[in-house]
């Protein structure tokens, strides 16, 4: 297959989207955004109440791609070595042998990530940012396609530790799935009378397809003016009242890349303000750290970012 053909890559996206939406009903828009982060090479954090389909969605994505898949259930007693791996002394060879942990995979589902202690959560930092792990002084490279999809419960819940800011910044987007409409919930019940639709999900892409999709996304053009618009948006988060720490330049990069992916999905060769605005809340909101006053005053990060989107004039 030809790498340079965007139609082929777009077909891969359509197959993935169709497959996942067949399992998770009523989440078409969120699936599109998750795939945007996936195609842009970013990681995804799903955040909502228990039972809203976070894990199902993550598993559906993992199953749709024929790739090495591991799942880590984060618990309060989980240790960093449980994720990264551990060196064990081999008495026969009288040497330490490294046993790779679950992080050495292609798609990693970190379920309920905020139930582990910050120490354990932080074990993923290097892996997510740089695609490599340093254990016992050795640098070990992760597979080319390394994608983390994590789920967490809202922080106010019992037995949760909030993610460190640095860890939050590593996720390209954070999504709240929310409850689906009654119609969709009814059809969901109908599909689950005998067995779970996840069982019928057939893989529709291989690792090479995903890498091809990522390359095609990188070809989407971003004009000088759009880059400026993105920077204006991200810059505004640093100046807004009630925000202690705004979004980082990493956020600008993530916003540009995910916008490129959305533009690609829309069969556009260039990013338009619509793409940026569509994904801005998902990319920016979780990175903001509010003033304690604003936090306790009930300020919502998403509402803040939406306010910024209304402040900055859009290029037309």
């Amino acid at each position: 297959m030809n790498d340079s053909n965007p139609h082929v890559a777009r077909e891969i996206y359509r197959r993935l989207h169709h497959a996942i939406c067949g399992v998770v009903r009523g989440q078409e828009i969120n699936v599109r955004r998750i795939l945007a982060a996936f195609a842009a090479g970013g990681h995804v954090l799903l955040d909502d109440y228990p039972g809203t389909g976070k894990t199902t969605l993550a598993k559906a994505l993992a199953r749709a791609v024929t790739a090495r898949f591991t799942r880590v259930q984060f618990t309060p007693d989980l240790l960093p070595s449980d994720i990264l791996g551990v060196a064990i002394y081999n008495q026969k060879t009288t040497e330490f042998e490294f046993h790779e942990g679950p992080v050495f995979t292609e798609i990693l589902l970190a379920d309920e990530i905020n139930r582990a202690s910050p120490r354990t959560q932080s074990a993923l930092l290097e892996a997510m940012a740089e695609g490599q792990v340093s254990v016992e002084g050795n640098r070990r490279t992760l597979p080319h396609l390394f994608f983390v999809i994590a789920t967490q419960n809202p922080v106010e819940f019992r037995g949760t530790y909030p993610l460190p800011e640095a860890q939050m910044d590593r996720f390209a987007i954070q999504l709240e799935l929310g409850y689906v409409s009654p119609e969709h919930e009814a059809s969901l019940l109908a599909t689950q009378v005998h067995d779970h639709p996840l069982e019928h999900l057939k893989p529709c892409a291989v690792v090479e397809d995903v890498l091809r999709l990522r390359r095609a996304v990188q070809e989407v053009r971003v004009s000088e003016e759009m880059r400026r618009y993105i920077v204006d948006l991200v810059g505004a988060t640093r100046k807004t009242q009630g925000v202690r720490l705004g979004a980082s330049p990493r956020a600008s990069i993530a916003l540009m890349k995910t916008s490129q992916a959305l533009a690609f999905f829309d069969e556009s060769n260039c990013v338009t303000p619509d793409h940026v605005k569509e994904i801005a809340v998902a990319v920016l909101a979780h990175r903001l750290i509010l003033d304690p006053q604003a936090e306790f005053g009930g300020q919502n990060r998403r509402v803040l970012v939406e306010g910024i989107l209304r402040q900055i004039p859009s290029p037309v």
Partner: peptide, 12 residues
């Protein structure tokens, strides 16, 4: 609109 946006935002 689509043509206009290509004109405006496509560097090419």
């Amino acid at each position: 609109l689509q043509l206009h946006q290509r004109l405006r935002f496509d560097p090419m």
